[in-house]
């Protein structure tokens, strides 16, 4: 609020300047070159002043600690001997790539990210489409079904661990009562089910994110676009693919990109649901890192895993932005 007021106050104060400046621009005509130059420098001022707070804050409180912390990856930093730390080059990286559990966690991470993302996106997109046109009670409905996004991953993990429990969990009980199953299913202990169970909890958690973001994008589609499509007599499927999806493509690309990064790096759900078990079958790279750090205080190894994760995500991001030809959409 304050900012909006500040902005308009500044406008009233300097309104004249702004007005003239625009006039110069518009009327520039033949003297375009000269005007361009002056506009450029004033724009630069504007640009960097707007970016200044962001850059200062992010550099100080995100990059500085991270860069300082990254050195741990090249040290035998273990909490057991904080005062006697040696640089060991790339030994930590060698260690993790020789660890079968890490390789297993890598494979699991791919499954975890792929299925979670696909299901969250499709279900979230359908929900956003269904909610796009107003109907009675839509606000209440949204408020109710979006609450999952407002819970922490840790809490959701605990709740689903309980729901999925084979002995005291509700899901087995309901399936038994309904006669769908005869014997209890070990959702979190049976190797065939464990990954499905954690992914389903993650999907449950993340649908709301896509629904909210895509709904916001859908809501900003100008009505004329639809009218034009209606005049063409396009069916809803064609409208979807020819009008809606192209229009919200930037949002789709950004949200899926970010979501992949978050799903990949967030260990909380796995940590509280299965701790990577049984036998490491649901262990993902981030929960592997957590167990190294919390289990044995091996901050050096943990940081090395963190760097591997970062490199993987960077490669993914570059590939993804290239593949989606996002020069126009989520480009940078």
């Amino acid at each position: 609020m304050l900012v909006v007021m500040g902005g308009s106050a500044a406008h009233h104060f300097f309104n004249k300047g702004g007005l003239k400046f625009m006039e110069t621009n518009v009327k520039a005509g033949s003297t375009e070159n000269k005007a361009k130059k002056s506009r450029f420098s004033s724009q630069l001022w504007f640009i960097w002043l707007c970016l200044l707070p962001v850059i200062v804050l992010v550099l100080t409180f995100t990059y500085y600690p991270v860069v300082r912390g990254i050195t741990l990856a090249f040290q035998d930093y273990n909490l057991m001997h904080v005062k006697n730390v040696k640089f060991i080059g790339f030994d930590n990286f060698k260690t993790i790539f020789h660890d079968n559990q890490f390789i297993l966690a890598l494979k699991n991470s791919l499954k975890w990210v792929f299925y979670s993302l696909i299901a969250q996106f499709i279900l979230g997109f359908i929900l956003a489409l269904v909610l796009n046109k107003p109907f009675k009670g839509r606000g209440i409905y949204q408020g109710l079904v979006f609450y999952s996004w407002a819970l922490s991953g840790f809490l959701i993990g605990l709740i689903f661990k309980w729901l999925y429990n084979s002995q005291i969990g509700v899901i087995n009980d309901l399936l038994l009562r309904a006669g769908i199953i005869k014997t209890r299913i070990g959702f979190l202990s049976d190797p065939h089910w464990a990954m499905f169970s954690v992914i389903s909890a993650n999907v449950w958690y993340g649908i709301a994110f896509f629904a909210i973001m895509l709904l916001a994008a859908l809501q900003s589609i100008p009505g004329e676009l639809f009218e034009a499509a209606d005049i063409d007599g396009a069916g809803w499927l064609r409208k979807l693919f020819n009008v809606i999806i192209p229009y919200i493509m930037p949002t789709i690309i950004t949200t899926t990109l970010l979501r992949v990064i978050w799903i990949f790096s967030d260990p909380t759900l796995i940590y509280s649901m299965t701790n990577g078990g049984p036998a490491g079958l649901t262990n993902i790279v981030s929960s592997f890192m957590l167990s190294k750090v919390f289990g044995n205080g091996e901050y050096g190894l943990g940081s090395a895993v963190g760097i591997v994760m970062m490199i993987m995500l960077m490669l993914y991001t570059i590939f993804y932005l290239f593949a989606t030809k996002s020069e126009k959409a989520g480009d940078f």
Partner: peptide, 26 residues
Amino acid sequence: MGVTKKSKYLYLGLATTVMAGMLSAC
């Protein structure tokens, strides 16, 4: 050129107000 100078001040002023707004909010 005077025009551009003025608009520089505009942006400077704006940024200051915004920063002040943020700081006071926080």
